[in-house]
Design a protein around this nucleic acid. Structure first.
Lengths: 220, 220
DNA sequence: CGCCCCTTTGAAGCATATCAAACCGCGTGG
DNA sequence: CCACGCGGTTTGATATGCTTCAAAGGGGCG
């Protein structure tokens, strides 16, 4: 499948991938047909990619098929460079597309050599990962799904306390979720009525999650 | 303003910031009152921050005051670590909040020493930056604003061609913008009717931007 | 020529926003 | 101690922007 190439066959687009890879690692080129999948979410991340011509979309899917495209990758762009072992999103060709490919290992090894125990790339990448998840939420989830996702995110980040004390008000939650505060309030009331959560104390900021499983189901 | 501290006064939360900084750089602690601004979008990024207690929100604002919160930063979280000179978003305290602060320079210098000319952090960070802008779009912009922003993004990335040939169809644009394809189509028709763009050829994929200024105004 | 995909356009429905009012706990000052 | 005011939240009624459902146009390709 992979078309081997060498320095002499390189095209005019020599971006960071080529620079990074330099002559230390092998680059190959490959051509994808319109709609062809480059990689799927959850698949092992073996390669890093640079678009030579055409366009790639990277996206996430909800279980019901709704899709959120994170980015379009155009000629010169690098994508698919993951810190973990698996791709966090899917990628496929919008049109007939040429890409340059290099084994992820090569890059990661170069990276590892240059950085020590505490990895700054990891740090930024975690932020990126959060942003990607959030884009999916903002672009494609309903109010109820958003609020459920928010509660579960906070629950997890607060290490699943019995009583979750939210430091932020309804307005802040609303702005985080791309909703109005009234809609957030209604969603919370609805979840309370459905016995998925309960308010503790008098402030409405102390929440007890009663059914994390059903909340997670709501979160698609 | 900054409260100097040393290793002896450090609290129990010693996350990556402390590790990164180690004993190489000075850490200070500071306390923000509820609602106090830690930094504003566009301000010079002089420090990196780690939350000790409380909560910080980072967000962007549209000119009419609509706000999109990107993240809530809870104890242990690091934020405000920028690659460029300026903050890409604002940060302020949701509640009374303690943060540990270190000069950005210290970290950046450590980083620079460890990495060479081609900076992987830059790479990931650019993606993050895009994601942040996109969250604002998804959470807070109207259909017309989204489509205008999309056109301007593509225009810029394609180096302002006279005729912009979009590689993707309406469905792809819609999924990128968190809309339906019909809404994208209606928005484009509306922009055409308002003489902000014109379709070239017969495919409706070749767009000529006639009034980038008004488009940019739409994009808030 | 005819089919298929993409796009546009129209009509109706619906989820969420907007507008409005009441409630509630809390802090403050009388 | 209570009255009051105030910010935050809930709830209700209405409005609306976007989606959904539907159909027709238009171009490319077999």
């Amino acid at each position: 499948m992979l078309v081997r190439t060498n320095a002499l066959t390189r095209r005019s687009i020599d971006g960071p991938l080529a620079t990074l890879a330099g002559d230390q690692v092998a680059c190959s080129e490959f051509r994808y047909r319109r709609g062809a999948e480059v990689f799927g979410e959850g698949e092992p991340a073996e390669y890093a990619y640079q678009v030579i011509s055409g366009a790639i979309r990277t996206y996430k899917l909800l279980s019901d098929g709704r899709r959120q495209i994170n980015s379009f990758h155009l000629p010169g762009d690098i994508f698919g460079l993951e810190n973990g072992r698996a791709h966090r999103f899917s990628a496929d060709a919008v049109v007939e597309t040429e890409v340059r490919i290099t084994r992820r290992h090569s890059l990661v090894d170069v990276m590892k050599r240059r950085e020590t125990e505490t990895n700054l790339v990891d740090l930024v990448t975690r932020n990126l990962q959060h942003a990607e998840n959030h884009m999916l939420l903002l672009g494609r989830k309903t109010a109820l799904e958003k609020v459920a996702a928010f509660l579960l995110e906070m629950d997890e980040r607060l290490a699943h306390p019995n009583v979750m004390v939210l430091p932020m008000g309804r307005r802040d939650i609303a702005d985080y979720l791309g909703l109005t505060l009234e809609t957030v309030s209604r969603a919370l009331s609805s979840l309370r009525d459905e016995h998925m959560l309960r308010f503790d104390g008098q402030t409405q900021r102390e929440v007890v999650l009663l059914d994390r499983i059903r909340l997670a189901e709501l979160d698609s």
